[in-house]
């Protein structure tokens, strides 16, 4: 029953978070200056045209009324119609979400691999020049934000050594057999590795730009907790049994040292997803973040709301998954 209660509490906090996000975004974007209708109409439109369109999108009503109308729609799964794209919001958002998810997941994988490898190398060769080198790499990775990494990578691998594509999600000349928007996953499922490779060459730089700062954070924290763990009695005891350094690090220390890092990755992953907004823009990657910027520029209120809700939902799901993994990996919580 404890479990049931925990799930209920979880669902309630998730709902509160989502409602909070909905309320805040709804009111804030209506308070900031800028008129979506004016953006839609050609210069020289008459007052009547403006009034008619304003009424069409319900923007002539009071904010409270608008909120009520929007909320009753949302509850029924209707997020309204995009003002700039003149299509229902949800299909638009869900059509773009997979591109962003694939980018974020790829970035996360890169960050975990690089960060983990750096941490393990640093601990294996602790108190030597190698550890210092890892510390320096972490410092550099952390002190340069993702969008600057993006520019550096564009110069390096897009201009000086053009090995990766700097724009878009997939080469436009290719014939796409895809039925879902999860191109990377689908290309693997269809064994179309030509397409997969093209997708990767597009995703690599934006993903790496997003990954580097996270890799540095992971490396730093994991190395620190590994080093602390290496001094604990059970690690020393394992040494007396005849185990060497590698085994001791990987089998004795890592499973315990990884727990705090896991929590951190969860939090940082949500930041990484936030980072996709600007990174997708820089690489003209057709994901949700890129769409969000267009929506803001166009003052497309329903679309902004839809995107924010989806992002908020994503964040709460990530937190949930992290908590579940933590409980799964930590025997002390597993039976609690």
């Amino acid at each position: 029953m404890k479990l049931l209660r925990a799930i209920l509490v979880r669902l309630m906090t998730m709902s509160v978070t989502l409602i909070g996000a909905a309320v805040v975004v709804f009111f804030v974007i209506r308070v900031v200056p800028g008129n979506p209708i004016a953006m839609m109409l050609p210069p020289g439109a008459t007052e009547e045209d403006i009034a008619r369109l304003t009424a069409l999108y319900g923007l002539d009503k009071s904010i409270i009324e608008q909120f009520w109308i929007w909320l009753t729609g949302v509850v029924q799964g209707d997020f309204g119609t995009s003002i700039s794209l003149r299509q229902p919001v949800m299909p638009l958002v869900l059509g773009r979400l997979p591109a962003t998810l694939e980018l974020a997941i790829f970035a996360l994988v890169i960050a975990v691999v690089i960060g983990g490898a750096l941490a393990l190398t640093g601990v294996r060769h602790r108190e030597t020049g190698t550890e210092t080198a890892v510390d320096v790499a972490n410092g550099v990775g952390l002190s340069i934000p993702d969008f600057l990494w993006a520019l550096i990578l564009i110069v390096l691998f897009g201009v000086l050594m053009p090995v990766f594509h700097i724009s878009g999600r997939i080469s436009p000349s290719l014939d796409l057999p895809f039925v879902t928007q999860f191109y990377v996953f689908e290309s693997i499922a269809r064994l179309r590795f030509d397409l997969w490779w093209d997708l990767l060459k597009h995703m690599f730089m934006p993903a790496l730009a997003l990954a580097i700062p996270l890799a540095a954070i992971i490396s730093q924290l994991l190395k620190q907790s590994l080093k602390e763990t290496m001094h604990l009695d059970y690690v020393t005891l394992a040494r007396t049994k005849g185990y060497g350094e590698n085994h001791v690090i990987l089998s004795e220390a890592l499973p315990n040292a990884v727990l705090p890092t896991l929590t951190l990755i969860g939090v940082q992953f949500t930041f990484l997803i936030g980072g996709t907004v600007i990174i997708e823009r820089l690489f003209s990657y057709e994901g949700l973040g890129n769409m969000a910027i267009d929506a803001v520029i166009n003052r497309d209120l329903p679309l902004i709301q839809g995107i924010v809700i989806v992002f908020a939902l994503l964040f709460t799901i990530i937190n949930l998954v992290v908590d579940m993994m933590y409980a799964l990996l930590n025997p002390r919580l597993r039976h609690a």
């Binding site: 604990l232 009695d233 059970y234 020393t236 005891l237 394992a238 007396t240 049994k241 005849g242 185990y243 004795e252 499973p255 315990n256 990996l329 930590n330 025997p331 002390r332």
Partner: peptide, 20 residues
């Protein structure tokens, strides 16, 4: 050492790996 010797540690609370 592993094959012929062994340690009985001081603190049983910290000498066992908590995750195994």
């Amino acid at each position: 050492i592993g094959a012929t010797a062994a340690l009985i540690p001081q603190d049983p609370l910290t000498a066992l790996n908590p995750s195994r």
